[in-house]
């Protein structure tokens, strides 16, 4: 499984290797069971993410839930695994 981060805007790359927030969810976690990689296929990522606390695509901080954003420990709602 390729790293979905390959598809991220360069500005977001530096945080990409942090562990994801423990509230981050996507279908791939229940299907592929390989952690965070989601529905990535080679060099693109169309993973659908949601936050376990809001059950929606926006987190408690009213910003979008996604692979890079939810690996950013600087985000106010981020909780380590």
């Amino acid at each position: 499984m390729a790293d979905p981060d390959n598809d991220l805007p360069p500005s977001e790359l530096p945080i990409a290797h942090e562990a994801p927030c423990r509230h981050l969810r996507h279908k791939g976690m229940y299907v592929y069971t390989d952690g965070i990689s989601g529905e990535s296929h080679q060099d693109y990522d169309n993973t659908i993410y949601w936050c376990l606390t809001t059950m929606k695509s926006f987190g408690p901080d009213d910003d979008m839930v996604d692979g890079p954003g939810c690996r950013n420990p600087g985000r106010t709602c981020y909780e380590a695994i």
Binding site: D7, H41, Q42, Y44, D45, N46, T47, I48, Y49, S57, F58, M64, D66
Partner: peptide
């Protein structure tokens, strides 16, 4: 994908093409 990401898709698809540029 509405108020959510997820609209990306594989492209080019299936075929081997030597010279490719793609931006989503």
């Amino acid at each position: 994908g509405g108020a959510r990401g997820g609209s990306n898709f594989p492209f080019p698809y299936v075929y081997a093409i030597k010279n490719v540029s793609r931006e989503h």
